[in-house]
């Protein structure tokens, strides 16, 4: 399945991702700069912050418990579309997902 990461400078990178991975894991596996994921997806940091593209917000669903608390500590502006990418699990219906990356993660 495909995911497109759009960097803060507008650079788009489309990658092949594995179903079942998180959006963070797919970014790491495909060497995307702009997603750090320091804690490995344990919700201990906010270094995998992303903005879900407006067209996909409904499909990715709401923030999980505790996610907004972590996002309070994100390095970049938190918007209504902000998510921790480690908490978005890739399912078939997210094929084609587009996420935008913040300017900074730390």
């Amino acid at each position: 399945m495909k995911i497109t990461y759009i960097a803060a400078d507008g650079t788009e990178t489309e990658v092949n991702a594995r179903e079942g991975d998180s959006v963070m894991q797919a970014a790491i596996a495909n060497d995307i700069d702009g997603i750090i994921g320091e804690c490995g997806g344990s919700m201990m940091c906010a270094t995998c912050h992303c903005y879900v593209d407006d067209a996909w917000v409904e499909k990715t669903g709401p923030q999980h418990d505790g996610e907004s608390d972590m996002l309070d500590c994100a390095a970049s502006e938190v918007k209504p579309t902000s998510r921790l990418s480690c908490q978005i699990k890739l399912t078939e219906e997210l094929d084609g997902l587009v996420v935008h990356l913040p300017e900074a993660q730390i």
Binding site: D21, Q25, I28, A29, N30, D31, G40, G41
Partner: peptide, 18 residues
Amino acid sequence: AYMADGDADRLLLKPASF
């Protein structure tokens, strides 16, 4: 997580290309 899924690829800090 590794004990549950046994997926070593997910453990990598960065892929070889990095």
